[in-house]
């Protein structure tokens, strides 16, 4: 897992200390290249304490005072190594994040593993939210941190800072990491509940504005993609297997959600409205298709179709 050596120019770049190196996809092992250590305020106060002790030793010609001062000075030094040890070797790998709607907190998950035989106490993880974990020897933990989302599309996580002040709080070791694991952000669904559009995208048959389930038609064996609310629970409870109720309206008429028909002054508003319709249609268990300029998703329903449609909106 040896990483390519950094050219000197990049190595000296100041941003490396604060926001980390260029984003990478793979797991990052914390090594001396990634981990930075600086004394904390308490560490600086500790230096003053050491100076005071040595001064007492000088004024009173007291060798034991000197010795205690030097011991604390050595402890100060040794703590640097321990601070590095608190983070060194940790491996951090991003997990594929779950998509969210814009405005929701974007969850980014990371797998943190401690390959060493040393337990790690108090490792702080900061994205926009903060979390403190400890890892036993050879333990792996998955953590989820949140970062607000504003715009649809792919959103990269910001700088994940892994830090620790263990053991004495005199130093803070930190590693700013950037990962190439983007989160898909769907458009924010519009607030107002407009009726579904009237006509299908480019089809002769007018679109349905009826809610599904108007006319109960029968029961068929459950197929993947059938909405949960269509499941014939009574039959399921009787032990007859999973069946879906079959509505004539749902099959015979299809809903086309067309960009051209979505109200709104500009692109984002229209996409937002389409998103609203998509959410509503999926919840209602309708079969719906999506028409965007240059893209046409035939009517269907179910989780996979729903995701495809939303992704199309997000990336449009």
């Amino acid at each position: 897992m040896s990483e390519a050596a950094l050219p000197l120019k990049q190595r000296l770049k100041l941003s490396r200390f604060f926001s980390g190196e260029a984003p990478t996809a793979g797991p990052i092992v914390l090594t001396q290249r990634r981990v930075f250590i600086l004394p904390t305020q308490r560490g600086l106060a500790f230096v003053l304490l050491i100076l005071l002790l040595v001064l007492i030793g000088f004024v009173y010609n007291n060798n034991l005072a000197y010795l205690l001062g030097f011991l604390l000075a050595s402890i100060f030094f040794v703590t640097i190594l321990h601070s590095f040890k608190a983070l060194a070797g940790l491996t951090i790998q991003p997990a594929r994040p779950q998509a969210v709607f814009a405005g929701q907190a974007g969850p980014y998950s990371f797998q943190i593993s401690n390959p060493g035989s040393q337990p790690r106490f108090a490792v702080d993880l900061t994205l926009q939210s903060e979390l403190s974990i400890s890892l036993a020897a050879e333990q792996t933990q998955i953590v989820t941190l949140y970062q607000p989302t504003h715009q649809r599309g792919w959103q990269l996580p910001g700088t994940l800072t892994v830090s620790s002040t263990y053991p004495l709080g005199l130093f803070r070791a930190w590693a700013p990491l950037r990962f190439d694991s983007p989160l898909l952000v769907y458009p924010k669904p519009a607030n107002q509940q407009l009726p579904f559009p009237e006509s299908g995208g480019g089809q002769d048959k007018p679109g349905q504005n009826r809610r599904s389930g108007d006319e109960f038609d029968g029961v068929r064996v459950y197929q993947r993609g059938d909405a949960i609310r269509q499941i014939h629970w009574k039959a399921f409870a009787k032990g007859q297997g999973v069946h879906s109720k079959y509505y004539s309206g749902a099959s015979s008429s299809e809903l086309w959600l067309d960009y051209q028909q979505a109200p709104g002054h500009h692109l984002e508003e229209r996409l937002s409205q389409l998103c609203r319709w998509l959410v509503d249609a999926e919840q209602a268990g309708l079969r719906y298709g999506l028409v965007l300029p240059g893209l046409r998703l035939p009517p269907d329903n179910g989780a996979a179709h729903y995701r495809n449609c939303l992704q199309a909106l997000a990336l449009f």
Binding site: S74, I133, Y166
Partner: peptide
């Protein structure tokens, strides 16, 4: 050390501090 650990254990903290002191003595 107890201040800076998540779930501190008395014995572990004492052990760590003893280790730090022993490691510091030669330099001191």
């Amino acid at each position: 050390i107890t201040q800076n650990s998540q779930a501190p254990q008395t014995l572990a903290a004492l052990k760590t501090s003893a280790a730090i002191i022993l490691q510091s003595l030669p330099l001191a």
